[in-house]
């Protein structure tokens, strides 16, 4: 056997590509669309349905991108939606007071970055485990908004919020365009920068990363701050979908959807593997799935269970994904050895 890197033929490379997790997700997305097409062609082919499906599922999309980074490190951030509400509160309150969007929106985003930094500080520098920290900060942030806002509702938001979620440009929903642009940025960050490489290493083994000289704390801090920023951006999408209204309970429960989508996208919650493509496709899968199930007549409770089951199955298969490819490698190697023996 030749030691070192095996040279793969073009065919083998193509084969490998086709069974990557991301491709499996694409197949799933296509299958879903086909199922809906076959069962309710009248609805599927009706103009606007596809756009509706996409728009309904993209209201949390920025958080998925941020969460991918966080989960890649092996952490998790349950406080993302609470963060989003704080941003909405900040922006909404300022605009209510007459301050123009040009200042109100960045102010809200800045607040989110600060909250993200708090998370980062507690996790990276104080050594608190991410799970329990973010559960606690989630209660804290949302609790603060509750105290500040009480029973009131914030109604004044910039018009572009609604435009993002409800309009289309050249037939493609604006939110989708923005999402793909943001995803492209994240791909660059993850795959082309030192920071991205560091993330992978930390996710794989934080101790080793520390010993090889990386400033693990700083990187974790940065990641949480990015997550905070994305949560703030998410408020634009989420509130836009609601046509510009926010209260303290807005978005409660969505963080689990975000985690589910990211896990479905192949980012192992233990850290160290996955990319951005997976979660992006998974976002669309979740959007189409939720919508189709309802169009096909399932009631809301049934839908929730179904998605719960899918979540588990998806994550199980993800965690055995390496197993699939490794098993295939094993099989190929065994076959080749058997051939050489004869």
């Amino acid at each position: 056997m030749i030691a070192g890197k095996k040279m793969l033929t073009k065919k083998q490379k193509a084969g490998r590509f086709l069974i990557r997790w991301e491709m499996l997700l694409m197949y799933l997305l296509i299958v879903l669309n086909l199922v809906l097409l076959i069962m309710r062609p009248d609805l599927y082919l009706k103009p606007g349905t596809l756009a509706s499906m996409i728009q309904s599922g993209l209201n949390i999309c920025p958080m998925v991108l941020g969460m991918s980074l966080i989960m890649m490190m092996g952490d998790v951030d349950v406080s993302c939606t609470a963060n989003m509400v704080v941003c909405a509160y900040a922006t909404g309150k300022l605009m209510e007071g007459g301050i123009p969007p040009a200042i109100a929106v960045p102010a809200g985003l800045a607040a989110c970055i600060v909250l993200g930094a708090v998370n980062g500080f507690l996790v990276a520098y104080m050594g608190m485990p991410a799970v329990i920290t973010t559960i606690a900060t989630s209660l804290l942030y949302r609790g603060m908004v509750r105290v500040a806002l009480g029973t009131n509702v914030l109604r004044v938001f910039p018009d572009f919020y609604s435009t993002v979620m409800w309009e289309e440009a050249a037939g493609i929903p604006v939110c989708m365009i923005l999402y793909l642009l943001m995803a492209a940025v994240f791909v660059v960050i993850l795959h082309k920068s030192r920071y991205g490489r560091a993330l992978y290493m930390i996710g794989n083994n934080a101790t080793t990363a520390e010993y090889s000289g990386m400033n693990v704390r700083k990187i974790k801090m940065i990641t949480f701050m990015i997550m905070g920023f994305m949560s703030g951006l998410a408020s634009i999408f989420y509130i836009g979908r609601l046509g510009g209204g926010a209260q303290s309970a807005t978005g409660n429960g969505e963080e689990m959807t975000v985690i589910a989508i990211t896990a479905l996208g192949g980012v192992s919650a233990a850290g160290g593997s996955g990319g951005i493509y997976g979660p992006v496709i998974a976002t669309f899968i979740m959007a189409v799935l939720k919508y189709s199930l309802s169009l096909l007549g399932m009631d809301d409770n049934g839908r929730k269970i179904f998605i719960g089951i899918i979540l588990i199955v998806a994550v199980i298969v993800t965690s055995t994904e390496r197993g699939i490819i490794d098993d295939l490698k094993e099989n190929m190697r065994k076959k080749r050895q058997a051939r050489y023996k004869n």
Binding site: I259, A269, I305, G308, I309, I312, V315, S319
Partner: peptide
């Protein structure tokens, strides 16, 4: 046995069990 992250695993099971109860 399936090596799923406990938080996600028990989240999923809680959905399923509540659904069955429903």
């Amino acid at each position: 046995y399936f090596d799923v992250q406990p938080m996600i695993a028990t989240l999923g099971t809680s959905y399923i069990i509540r659904g069955i109860t429903y």
